[in-house]
């Protein structure tokens, strides 16, 4: 592994561990404010939206169909692997047809 790669992995590990430990540590001194709490709660949704949007915008019709299928199957069944599997199948079929 290159030094850059090692550094990147190490830094990711440190940031992740700090997330796990920071709340526990901070609560020993000050309680979290509702605003910080609302911010922390909103980050995953916003980030996933930001990851998905460009990926879908750069995709074609099969990818959009796959997105819709993943969304609907997950909402209806709540089963993540089933939803992802259906979406992948739809994308594969769509690419074979177009």
């Amino acid at each position: 592994m290159s030094p850059d790669l090692l550094f990147a992995l190490g830094a990711m590990a440190v940031v992740t561990y700090l997330c796990r430990a920071a709340g526990y540590f901070a609560m020993g001194y000050v309680p979290l404010t509702p605003r910080i709490e609302a911010w922390l709660e909103s980050i995953p949704i916003a980030t996933l939206g930001a990851v998905l949007a460009p990926a879908l915008a750069n995709g074609g019709l099969p990818e959009l169909a796959g997105f819709a299928v993943a969304l609907v199957v997950m909402r209806q069944t709540g089963h993540d692997f089933l939803a992802a599997g259906c979406a992948v199948a739809v994308v594969a079929i769509g690419r074979a047809l177009i």
Binding site: C19, R20, G23, A26, I43, P44
Partner: peptide, 24 residues
Amino acid sequence: LAALLFAAFAMNARYVLYGAMLRP
């Protein structure tokens, strides 16, 4: 690097809340 670190923080930010709740 910046995006990787942001990903690590963003997807784990909820752990800050989890940890805070466990403190007491």
